[in-house]
């Protein structure tokens, strides 16, 4: 973020914002009737029994809730920026976690399945994604070079490939590869079929990333290299790609994070990855939400870790270039 040297008044401390928020939040809480809540019971000395407090109780609870929200926001508004970010994050996280309480999750059940979800599910998800991203990157390099070459065949094949695989839903590709290949006489296991679908689909998307990366290397590098008598392949390998790859790695990391979640689609063909386990482990005992919430949390944590790694890689290449 660029530092702005002009300081504006804080929005959250402007009277019209505070009053506006109070009215809006109050109306919303009134509309959704939160009288029978924790806050309603706290306020029972004022409104009596929440259940029979009528419109008066409903109004008081909604107003108090809105007031608490506004006070909270105004106080956080006084914090320095970093603390502000932390506080808002923590509050939102707390809000999300209260959902878990609302769902009344069976923690003992989660605990009994957690280790299996990690060793089987997370492991499979990670390795399917990792292999796929490597294959996709190779496809993308070939596709990008083909798209940039003079050769009509290469361009046609590459653009047909990207058009086709970007034009079909990934889920459909997964089904077609898994169910279609056996009809041609090749029976493929679920995992290779899933990896093939993910690689082909992401390779098509990443071809465009790689092409843009290669094209962002200045024309002068081409000319400098060609003028010294380097042929096309040598120029690509030794001059252009080494300069393009630092530009390509950050968006590729992004694709990997996206793939981690899209790999959940291969659960439909029975690969025992995280999504598959989240959907199936709780079925027998009707504890769907327990497993889904656990799976969701694991996906989220994995993504946070990968995003942290990603931003480090980006910082590394930024430093290297300057």
């Amino acid at each position: 973020m660029y530092a702005d040297t002009v300081i504006a008044d804080k929005l959250v401390h402007k009277p019209h914002f505070i009053i506006g928020l109070l009215v809006a939040a109050g109306a919303l809480f009134f509309l959704f009737n939160i009288t029978d809540s924790f806050l309603g019971h706290v306020l029972s000395p004022v409104i009596g029994d929440p259940a029979s407090s009528g419109l008066y109780g409903r109004f008081v609870v909604a107003f108090m809730a809105a007031l608490l929200l506004v006070i909270n926001i105004v106080i956080i508004g006084f914090f320095p920026r970093k603390l502000q970010i932390l506080a808002v994050w923590m509050e939102l996280l707390l809000l999300a976690l209260t959902l878990g309480i609302v769902f009344n999750l069976d923690l003992a059940f989660i605990k009994s399945k957690l280790w299996f979800m990690i060793t089987q599910g997370v492991f499979t998800t990670l390795y399917v994604s990792a292999i796929s991203i490597v294959i996709a990157s190779i496809l993308a390099i070939i596709g990008a070079v083909a798209k940039l070459s003079d050769n009509g065949f290469a361009f046609a094949i590459a653009s047909f490939y990207t058009s086709l695989f970007r034009g079909l839903p990934l889920l459909m590709q997964v089904y077609i590869i898994y169910l279609g290949l056996p009809q041609l006489g090749y029976v493929v296991d679920a995992i290779p079929a899933g990896i093939a679908a993910l690689s082909l689909c992401y390779g098509a998307y990443m071809t465009e990333i790689f092409r843009a990366g290669i094209e962002s290397v200045s024309r002068g590098q081409w000319e400098g290299s060609r003028a010294m008598g380097f042929k096309f392949g040598l120029t690509m390998r030794k001059i252009i790609l080494p300069q393009a790859i630092p530009l390509i790695i950050p968006p590729t990391g992004n694709q990997f994070i996206a793939m981690l979640k899209d790999s959940s689609l291969v659960s439909v063909i029975g690969v025992w990855e995280l999504m598959f386990l989240s959907r199936t482990l709780g079925v027998k005992t009707f504890q769907h939400i327990e497993m889904l919430m656990t799976g969701a949390l694991i996906y989220w944590i994995l993504t946070i870790i990968l995003e942290a790694i990603q931003s480090r890689i980006e910082a590394h290449y930024r430093k290297q270039r300057s």
Binding site: G220, G224, R226, A227, M228, G229, I239
Partner: peptide, 17 residues
């Protein structure tokens, strides 16, 4: 390509790698 190896070229923008 062979001919280019026998002709040196110096650019305005250097074009070093």
């Amino acid at each position: 390509d062979k001919l280019r190896t026998e002709i040196g070229m110096v650019f305005q923008s250097f074009n070093l790698f």
